Simulated scan of single mutants.
Amino acid sequence: MKALWLIAVDGSPPALRAVDHVLLEAARDAIAPAIMLVNVQAPLPSDVTRFVSHGVVQDYHREAGEAALAGARFRLETGGLAYSQHILVGEPAPTIVNFAREQHCTLIVIGARGLGSVASALLGSVTSKVIHLTELPVLVVK
């Protein structure tokens, strides 16, 4: 069975370092894992969405997700690694975990983000929540 790795990408430098790490790991193996790039967009507040059409909201999420995924796509394409991309809407950590479970991923790869708070002194809050919510292995890349 081929490995299926989910890479959570928000466009940040730590997320791009996670993509770079996957490229290095894939180059070492004879069989590259299947890669799913995932970006999670926060839902817009209802006081905003009630004034615009559903299509406008979908376009906004798609455009923002595409922008967040651009650097990761470029790196994977340059490295010759195939991938699928997925732009989801919801609370980031549970959305990532649920999607990984539904897709039968074998690993979640995510960048670390130091946000300076006591709860997330070493890891970003999304990264910490993903680790706590999933039973899957999680690779955190600094």
Results as ranks from 00 to 15, higher is better:
136 L>Y: 05
72 A>K: 13
37 L>D: 00
125 S>W: 07
123 L>N: 01
72 A>L: 13
35 I>D: 00
79 G>H: 07
83 Y>G: 02
94 P>Q: 03
125 S>N: 08
102 E>Y: 10
70 A>F: 09
55 G>M: 03
84 S>P: 02
95 T>F: 09
73 R>K: 15
98 N>W: 00
87 I>Y: 09
83 Y>W: 14
37 L>F: 04
60 Y>I: 06
86 H>M: 09
35 I>C: 01
121 A>H: 02
122 L>W: 15
121 A>F: 05
104 H>M: 11
63 E>T: 12
57 V>L: 05
53 S>H: 08
134 T>C: 05
74 F>M: 13
122 L>P: 02
67 A>Q: 03
57 V>M: 02
91 E>N: 15
47 D>A: 05
36 M>Q: 01
120 S>N: 13
97 V>C: 15
73 R>W: 06
88 L>I: 13
44 L>H: 05
132 H>P: 01
30 A>W: 01
113 R>Q: 04
48 V>Q: 03
39 N>C: 04
83 Y>L: 01
136 L>E: 08
42 A>L: 15
69 L>Y: 02
59 D>M: 07
32 A>E: 05
81 L>E: 06
125 S>L: 06
74 F>Y: 07
34 A>E: 14
122 L>K: 10
35 I>E: 00
82 A>D: 13
89 V>K: 03
120 S>W: 04
102 E>H: 14
84 S>H: 05
44 L>D: 01
108 I>H: 03
124 G>Y: 10
39 N>M: 02
73 R>G: 11
59 D>K: 10
61 H>S: 02
56 V>R: 12
45 P>M: 12
102 E>R: 15
43 P>N: 06
104 H>C: 10
95 T>P: 10
129 K>Q: 15
55 G>A: 09
70 A>R: 14
116 G>R: 07
61 H>E: 13
68 A>Q: 14
95 T>Y: 13
63 E>A: 13
71 G>N: 06
132 H>N: 15
126 V>W: 01
130 V>L: 09
106 T>C: 02
109 V>F: 04
47 D>Y: 14
106 T>E: 02
124 G>R: 04
71 G>W: 07
127 T>D: 07
100 A>F: 05
59 D>R: 15
75 R>C: 11
65 G>T: 10
120 S>M: 01
126 V>H: 03
104 H>L: 11
61 H>Y: 14
91 E>M: 12
79 G>L: 07
54 H>V: 08
43 P>W: 02
117 S>Y: 02
